[in-house]
């Protein structure tokens, strides 16, 4: 069996070593798989993707990409380890133009590759083309999300991590973003996505992990979890009972 694309084992992590937010979380993502992480507020969903991306220190446990350990790797090196990450907020440089945002995302590539892939990004996201020379601060929330995803894909990653891509978007925009992600899966890219929109997350993904209070609670096929009463119970606040 070939190694999993992403394997997270018993990760304990937090901004301060004495105050962990994750108390031992495990998950894995296979090739061309879409995995979502859901959970109530404060479950540690965002911290999990940040820890994988090297932005929150991991004090125990491990993260491996295709069998190679990348735990606590410096963030910029992860970008070359075929993982791309789109943060929830501040995911574009508002003081730079759209073009510059993309150029920055492609700055680990050769000039020729960068030019080609940026041209392709504009093809894939034609809505961005008309704003090329403008500062990213003129973009709407949905357009910023598009730009952030377009930028993340420039390095042709095997795994794309997204933190709440639907947050603050109109329902129309959400379905637009999600259908984009679906087409990505078809090209062989895997996706690990944190979502606060439970229904949408379960509808779109192959598998789902439910976190509560920094721990794994339930996981399984999204289609099965959709009818699970325990998932609903966690969201209704029963998640704090079992300690």
């Amino acid at each position: 069996m070939s190694p999993l694309l992403l394997e997270v084992r018993d990760v304990i992590a937090g901004y301060r070593p004495d105050l962990p937010i994750l108390h031992g979380v495990s998950l894995h993502v296979g090739t061309a798989e879409m995995v979502t992480v859901i959970g109530p507020n404060g479950a540690g969903k965002s911290t999990l993707v940040k820890a994988i991306a090297g932005l929150v220190p991991i004090s125990a446990g491990s993260v491996a990409v295709e069998g190679t350990e990348v735990t606590n790797l410096l963030t910029h090196k992860l970008a070359t380890a075929s993982i791309a990450y789109v943060p929830q907020t501040a995911n574009v440089f508002t003081s730079l133009t759209i073009d510059e945002n993309l150029k920055l995302g492609a700055s680990t590539l050769s000039k020729a590759d960068a030019g080609r892939r940026i041209a392709k990004a504009y093809e894939d996201f034609p809505a961005l083309t008309q704003y090329r020379g403008q500062k990213a601060k003129v973009l709407s929330g949905g357009q910023r999300q598009m730009l952030a995803v377009a930028r993340a894909l420039l390095t042709e990653p095997r795994l794309l991590m997204l933190d709440e891509p639907s947050a603050g978007l109109s329902p129309l925009m959400v379905s637009e973003v999600f259908s984009r992600l679906k087409t990505l899966i078809a090209t062989g890219v895997s996706i690990l996505m944190v979502e606060q929109n439970v229904k949408a997350a379960l509808a779109i993904s192959d598998r789902t992990y439910v976190l509560a209070e920094g721990r794994n609670r339930i996981d399984g096929d999204s289609a099965k979890l959709a009818g699970d009463t325990e998932v609903a119970a966690i969201y209704l606040g029963a998640g704090g009972r079992k300690r």
């Binding site: 410096l74 963030t75 910029h76 943060p87 501040a90 920055l104 995302g105």
Partner: peptide, 10 residues
Amino acid sequence: DLVRINGIDT
């Protein structure tokens, strides 16, 4: 942080 995410060694 976003610069690092872009793969650049700050």
